[in-house]
Simulated assay, not measured.
Amino acid sequence: MRFMVMIKASQESEAGMMPSEELLTAMGRYNEELVQAGVLQAGEGLQPSAKGARVKFSGSQRTVIDGPFSETKELIAGFWIFQVKSLQEAIEWVKRCPNPMPGESEIEIRQVFEAEDFGAEFTPELRQQEESVRAQLSNKA
């Protein structure tokens, strides 16, 4: 099972405050542990929302909204993709994570959809297309 593990933003991360050397060191050790255990598939920190944008869809219309975005508690400051056996295992790994923000912080864990989750609507042709896209990505990496 794959899980996306999202570090929620804080006022400090949205203000562009960089993590301390101590936190970077602790996160580096944590990431190494995840890699050695075969859990980590990807992970990155994200720039503040002031450097981003949202695209709002309404039928065929597209509206671009430039950051920053006001609801800090809804924003993501970074993420990991974990490959684990269960939600409980993902939770156990997250509980070992250094606190990513000064003071209180929150990390959200969400399971990633796999092809078999989509049922009959995910036709053999769509599966083949998905496999082709993944193969192209693997070749670029």
Rank of each mutant, 00 (worst) to 15 (best):
G16Y: 14
G16H: 14
M17T: 15
M17R: 15
M17Q: 15
M17Y: 14
S20F: 13
S20Q: 01
E21N: 01
E21T: 08
E21P: 01
E22I: 13
E22L: 10
E22G: 12
L24G: 15
T25M: 14
Y30G: 08
Y30I: 02
E33M: 15
V35M: 15
A37Y: 11
V39H: 02
L40D: 04
A42V: 07
G43N: 03
G45E: 03
Q47R: 13
A53M: 03
R54E: 01
G59V: 12
G59F: 12
S60H: 01
S60E: 12
R62H: 10
T63P: 05
T63D: 15
T63H: 03
F69P: 02
E71Q: 11
T72M: 10
L75G: 00
I76W: 07
I76A: 09
I76V: 10
A77K: 12
F79P: 01
W80C: 01
W80Q: 09
W80V: 05
I81A: 07
F82N: 11
F82S: 10
Q83C: 04
V84Y: 11
Q88F: 06
E92N: 15
E92F: 13
K95E: 10
C97F: 11
P98T: 02
P98V: 00
P100T: 00
G103F: 05
S105P: 09
S105H: 04
E108P: 00
I109Y: 03
V112P: 09
A115V: 11
D117I: 09
D117N: 03
